[in-house]
């Protein structure tokens, strides 16, 4: 294979995880900002959140490593610290999601809709 092509391939393979992470993050951000439906916003928020899991876990992976459970005859383990941090993040994430959905249900009771625009309309009528 020719030299420059090899180099480009190296950059792509080395950064592919990060690019997907960035794509997920940006897509989540877009959903949160552009969509008026509140359940959709929460789905976008959780996509944003899962992209952060990927952001933390992928630098901790070592090629040729195994999961960080100490066993005889294994020398290389992946980094355990990001795993711990993300375990905490997942559980906190579902707690905040539950709270958000509770708020959505409450808003639906109060306004009869979960669309942002329709709620704004109701406010301007008064």
């Amino acid at each position: 294979m020719s030299e420059p092509l090899d180099e480009i391939l190296n950059v792509v393979v080395g950064n592919f995880n990060q690019w997907i992470t960035i794509f997920l993050m940006v897509a989540g951000l877009y959903v949160v900002v552009a969509r008026g439906n509140m359940v959709k916003k929460l789905v976008g928020l959780s996509i944003f959140q899962t992209s952060v899991y990927l952001l933390y876990i992928s630098p901790g992976k070592i090629l040729g490593g195994t999961p960080p459970i100490i066993t005889d005859g294994v020398e290389v383990y992946s980094n355990p610290l990001p795993h711990v941090l993300i375990l905490t993040a997942i559980v906190v994430g579902v707690a905040t999601l539950a709270l958000g959905l509770g708020l959505v249900v409450r808003i639906n009771e109060a306004y009869g809709t979960i669309e942002e625009e329709e709620i704004f309309d109701q406010g301007s009528d008064e």
């Binding site: 959780s46 899962t50 899991y53 876990i57 992928s58 901790g60 992976k61 070592i62 490593g65 195994t66 999961p67 960080p68 459970i69 383990y77 992946s78 990001p82 795993h83 993300i86 375990l87 997942i90 559980v91 994430g93 579902v94 999601l97």
Partner: peptide, 19 residues
């Protein structure tokens, strides 16, 4: 695939199940 087995179990149970 990224060797985070504990996180994967939690994500499957919490992310895909409870959420």
């Amino acid at each position: 695939v990224l060797d985070a087995v504990d996180v994967a179990m939690t994500e499957a149970a919490v992310g895909a199940g409870v959420s």
